[in-house]
Design a protein around this nucleic acid. Structure first.
Lengths: 198, 198
DNA sequence: CGCCAGGTTGAAGCGCTTCAACGTCTGTGG
DNA sequence: CCACAGACGTTGAAGCGCTTCAACCTGGCG
């Protein structure tokens, strides 16, 4: 828990240096939690009522589409993991959050967070910066899906998010890249035969 | 300009009811501007220094990819139009913003806006809500690109953004949907032959 | 009238998908 | 300790849809 607070403090300080009393208030609404591998942080159909900051572990966001389990995103330790859309709009999530490794984390529930926003201008700013940050991430993702080939996306993933390749089974990565597992396998085979051509 | 202020007020009030003095300050940093059809609000390679609220007109965001002009987004009157990523990160934009119709708008430049955030907690909140809002939009877009077929995306566009079909030449819509113009044409032909099957 | 951009249509090609079979590794139970 | 089931990844063959390249049509505009 000490460790976890330190991580979160480091993350937050990058965005906004909260005055000590605001940090204390912010820390006051944290709820520690932990999940075993395979457990759900959020079930599909529930309204996402928490934002989670991961101290350790790995979480995937997935949906069921035409009966298929498709992975939409991966969240690693040292980052926030949440279904932000459901959290913001207060509507049932079409996405589930599942621990792929044992996770330790702290959660902030929606009501507490809104209260903090209301009473702390710096927290409000932090919220804005986080929203802006995840927007730029989402925006890059959209761009990559529109303009890059699956092979380019795979190569970019290796370069930019090596942890994913290292810690996630391939079948989950495939749908994250917008592919079937067989296709990802073939792309990998193609690349090892002809390493860095082009 | 009266009209434009009213529109912006309506838009803003949906998010946050600014106290009168904060609204006045906010209004004070607005810079009216207008662009002819074809003119650029933002050139590729420049840092986006403004957020624009469109009173009238239509703007597209595009990029040049392998020598091809690809459209990434459309912005209509009554909404903000900007290259938010460049605006936020203060890095040169890989995207250009071009008026597709004559546009009247008000702009907020980056420094002024940061100043407003610093001095007005409600403005800060408005910034957060806007960032959250465009994130959920981007998130839905990503989802659609990952999980829907081009035909499904086209049908969704007709239903959810009919203005796009009504006012934008098809070739721009094609790249917005992640297609070549010929493919969009064929999808349309397919659908008119077999109207709403499935 | 004739040019040109935008849209449509045709034919061939390529890449991802589908369905299926096979290999490998791991964990479980005999 | 070995045997086997099951999950995961790989590989093969056939299919389909988008792309590519090209020709053609139409409507707008000088």
């Amino acid at each position: 828990m000490e460790q976890l607070l330190t991580q979160l403090r480091a993350y937050s300080d990058q965005l906004v240096k909260l005055p000590e009393h605001e940090w204390t208030r912010f820390a006051g609404i944290m709820q520690p939690a932990s999940f075993n591998k395979g457990q759900h942080l959020l079930e599909i159909g529930h309204v996402c009522d928490h934002v989670c900051f991961l101290g350790t572990g790995l979480v995937r966001a997935y949906r069921i589409h035409d009966g298929e389990d498709l992975t939409e995103q991966f969240f690693f330790e040292g980052n926030y993991a949440t279904e932000y859309e459901s959290f913001l709009t207060r509507t049932p999530s079409t996405v589930g959050l599942q621990a792929m490794e044992p996770c330790t984390l702290v959660r902030f529930n929606h009501a507490d967070l809104q209260g903090t926003y209301a009473s702390s201008p710096m927290a409000e700013r932090m919220g804005r910066l986080i929203a802006e940050h995840i927007f730029t991430g989402s925006s890059r993702r959209t761009r990559s899906l529109l303009f890059d080939t699956p092979e380019q996306r795979y190569l970019a993933l290796i370069k930019e998010r090596p942890k994913v390749m290292a810690r996630v089974p391939q079948k989950y990565i495939a749908s994250y890249l917008g592919l079937k597992p067989e296709s990802l396998s073939r792309i990998r085979a193609r690349l090892t035969r002809k390493p860095v051509a082009a």
